[in-house]
Nucleic acid binder design. Sequence first.
DNA 1: CTAGGAGTTTCATTGGGTGGAACACTAGGG
DNA 2: CCCTAGTGTTCCACCCAATGAAACTCCTAG
Lengths: 284, 284
Amino acid sequence: MTAAPERHPDSAGPGTPAAIRGKRPKQGEPVIDRALSLLAVFTDRRRALTLSEMARYADIPAPTALRLIARLVAWGALERLDDGRYVVGVRLWEVASLSPRGHGVREIALPYLEDLFEVTRHHVLLAVRDGNEAVLIERLSSKEATEVAYRVGGRAPLRSTAVGLVLLAGADTAFQDAVIRQPADVEAGVDAMPEGQLRRTLSDVRRTGVAMIRRSAPSRTVSVASPIFDAQGAVAAALSIVVPDGATPPNVLAPAVQATARAVSRNLGFKAEVSAGVRHLAQA
Amino acid sequence: MTAAPERHPDSAGPGTPAAIRGKRPKQGEPVIDRALSLLAVFTDRRRALTLSEMARYADIPAPTALRLIARLVAWGALERLDDGRYVVGVRLWEVASLSPRGHGVREIALPYLEDLFEVTRHHVLLAVRDGNEAVLIERLSSKEATEVAYRVGGRAPLRSTAVGLVLLAGADTAFQDAVIRQPADVEAGVDAMPEGQLRRTLSDVRRTGVAMIRRSAPSRTVSVASPIFDAQGAVAAALSIVVPDGATPPNVLAPAVQATARAVSRNLGFKAEVSAGVRHLAQA
DNA sequence: CTAGGAGTTTCATTGGGTGGAACACTAGGG
DNA sequence: CCCTAGTGTTCCACCCAATGAAACTCCTAG
């Protein structure tokens, strides 16, 4: 399902040993890729960029970048600020909001997330898997809630987050193996799991329908996550709640999270009995 | 504003220097525009399309469409389903989430919208202006709330919605005039305002900081909206609440909506006193 | 079996894309 | 003041990436 396990091809150019040619590794990249790489230069930290910044980051000559950007602006993928800088446009956001795995699940899940949020008053997260990372689709947070590591639209590792574990446990075994074989991503505040324990954990997650992760940075928190299933019975997303460590015990949270996840699954067309067999509440 | 300003590819030669050619070059549209038009074929109703559907809607020959789509898929702008159909990809959504006027305002406003939502339990909307329409950035709705016309990512007219009026009132006068001169968009359930009344209404909205619209379809509702200001004192977005007609009277809702909008404005860096002068609560 | 539609590959042709060069402009720095 | 360095922009001759008709492979319906 994940179309491109490969990283971005646009960065392949500079590494090419074209030096032997004696000729400069000139162009030769499809225009679309260049245009898309111009979109990809925007990050959480860099939301407004000048022409030359964009050209530099995307490694495209200024005149060419200008021409491409002009088209993107005309369409609305980018917008130009008064000071001349460019930002991602509303039009692009509008199209992107049609992404089934983006706003799609969100749209259906939101009311249920709301409920869970109101009852608990803690962070409620919704994530889907893209490649070997989890992408945060939604996050509800009260203004007073504890600090949390990830923002909506951001990415989180699969092995060291509750939603990540749920998504990983729901993936096909071939993919799981590939991820497990990779060196564990070192992340602050979470203990890296050795392979054996990770496999056992994933198995538990599949059986119980709940994943739990305790972390100490950026703040001491406990996350409890559950899978959301689509009509085909595949894990479409993961729902989690993040609470300060020491507050409500995880085994009290689990039923609430599970129940909410199930409610969302049902609205996605999932029939619990069909492919899931008997599922129990997590043991106390 | 609306998708593509340029229509025909034959508009290349204004001076018609190609007349001597005698040949009719069919294609000639920039590749980027074609790629973008392939993204634009997705709508609320059509979220998963086959290759030939996309090619047909975008008016691009199948082989060419296939090639372009392949690039888009490789990057993640599109994803391919198991059945071969294409949908908008998470990667695109991810980049789009960096849109300042899209998820940007939303990110800041959400906790406050939450509060308002919890207190009232009615629809809470957040919208920005794009061209001569309002784009819905966020909508919080309880599962039991009344039917509402617009979805997140969708567009709404400026003249006949509460958020629209707020955004219109906050635009520069030249733009306002242009909109007012346009024939009123006929919309079910809302009475079209004659020019004079519209001008008066906009003036009132600017003065009081509140807009109100009553509509009878798809259900009988009352909307109350207030402007959200950015650091420069410009209207960056509009916040509104939609309640069943006959429930809580609008003048009770107004202060809550205004207070919430102000809270968001403050978090966007707006200093109330600087450019707004004294603002009063709407009279009771 | 035929017909038709969707998806894909091939390939000769050509016009859109390219980026160096040159321009205008602004901001420092001496 | 001139001078340098940076940005954004226009110009234009070269040429390779983009193109789409045609052909081919799977399907499914009749």
